[in-house]
Write a protein that binds this DNA or RNA. Structure first.
Length: 353
DNA sequence: AACTGAGTCAACCGCCTATTC
DNA sequence: GGAATAGGCGGTTGACTCAGT
């Protein structure tokens, strides 16, 4: 009964990851890059499921993670995005630099859901998906990433017609099943206000994502890095132009996950970075206990909070920079966040409705 | 000091889509 | 065209922590 496990689980270790395992995983990914998760444990010598490795990397070891408490600004953003997107945590996380879907999901379930139910502060963008083509729920699935195409079927952005209709039939069946069930108010709201089908993503929400991308393309007004980075500090936008040819010196004295014997990359690939050279300073200093202060990234004489394992990779593939799009100082206007709200409203105005 | 209940969060599970063969 | 595989997602679980009694 039941489906086969995602991988051979006999003899695999489960539960919390040890620091040694973290180090092995981080080093392997630094050397070989992300991907091939299924074969990764074997190749890296880890007694873990590939999925577990992926989760560990994404939720904990990745370079651009922002650790510490979720700030009030971030909470506001989560509430607003959730009102629009529903439980699509990965999408929400995509708009909160340094936060993972798991982290946001946990935070939501532990306190924000209650607060959202009670207070309902923040904007709610109501979108009745039943009025949209294929209004329904998108679950799981691999995000389409051009970079992943690697030359194979690059133009094939969506399913083939047949596969699509097959999946659509499946979804229809599923929706029919769900229609027969009693759903909670919250689920209903999420379903009606944000969750979407493939069709929608090509349409209205797809445009929404385009608008987000559009924002990303906008010149980011200022590089606001501080010397005092508390846990509650909102994420900051980074303008590469501001960096100019400056050297980013990465201080990792307090890196909580880096194994001393492994170290961190000393210098990112100059070709990848152009004139933005990165000096990682003394490699491999950090093997401290959990809970150490956040990482500092020195930009000339300025510090900013960051975690550093694999930062070179993030820089190389632009993921890091492309995710740093929200500048809260700019968005949260003195007049009570109206500007932020207007940005969000703009994001979710569907002219097709 | 011992117990308990609530809160937190890392990790797991099962299902999904995309891609490859 | 269909099966197999890989990877991504949201939901759920359970270990752990901590405040309250």
């Amino acid at each position: 009964m039941g489906r086969a496990p995602c991988c051979e689980k006999v003899g695999l270790k489960r539960g919390r990851w040890t620091r040694e395992e973290d180090a092995v995983l981080a080093r392997y990914i630094r050397e070989h890059g992300e991907g091939a998760w299924r074969s990764l444990p074997k190749n890296a010598g880890l007694l873990r499921c590939g999925k577990s490795c992926r989760l560990r990397w994404i939720n904990y070891l990745r370079a651009d993670l922002k650790r510490g408490n979720i700030s009030e600004e971030e909470e506001e953003m989560i509430i607003k995005l959730h009102a629009t997107l529903g439980n699509r945590w990965s999408l929400i996380a995509g708009h909160l630099p340094g936060r993972t879907d798991n982290e946001i999901k946990n935070h939501w379930n532990s306190h924000l859901s209650k607060r959202a139910r009670e207070g309902g502060d923040g904007i709610v963008v109501d979108v009745d998906l039943s009025k949209l083509p294929g209004g329904g729920k998108r679950r799981g699935g691999r995000a389409i990433k051009a970079t992943k195409a690697k030359g194979k079927d690059k133009g094939k952005e969506r399913k083939s017609g047949k596969a699509k209709s097959k999946a659509a039939a499946k979804m229809a069946r599923r929706r029919k099943e769900e229609d027969g069930k009693n759903i909670t108010k919250e689920q209903a709201h999420a379903s009606s206000s944000g969750v979407t089908s493939d069709g929608l993503e090509e349409g209205a929400l797809g445009r929404c994502e385009e608008m987000v991308s559009g924002l990303k393309d906008q010149p980011i007004p200022n590089l606001d890095v501080t010397t005092d980075v508390g846990d509650s500090e909102p994420p900051k936008a980074v303008d590469l132009d501001e960096l100019g040819g400056s050297v980013m010196e990465l201080d990792h004295h307090h890196h909580e996950r880096c194994n001393e014997s492994e170290g961190v990359p000393e210098l990112a690939d100059q070709e990848e970075l152009g004139d933005k050279a990165m000096d990682f300073g003394q490699p491999g200093c950090c093997n401290e206990d959990d809970g150490g202060p956040p990482e500092a990234v020195l930009l000339g004489d300025k510090d900013m909070e960051w975690d550093l394992v694999g930062l070179d990779e993030s820089l190389a593939n632009d993921d890091l920079w492309s995710s740093l799009v929200w500048d809260y100082d700019d968005m949260v206007a003195p007049c009570g966040g109206q500007e932020q709200e207007s940005v969000l409203s703009d994001l979710f105005l569907f002219d097709s409705i």
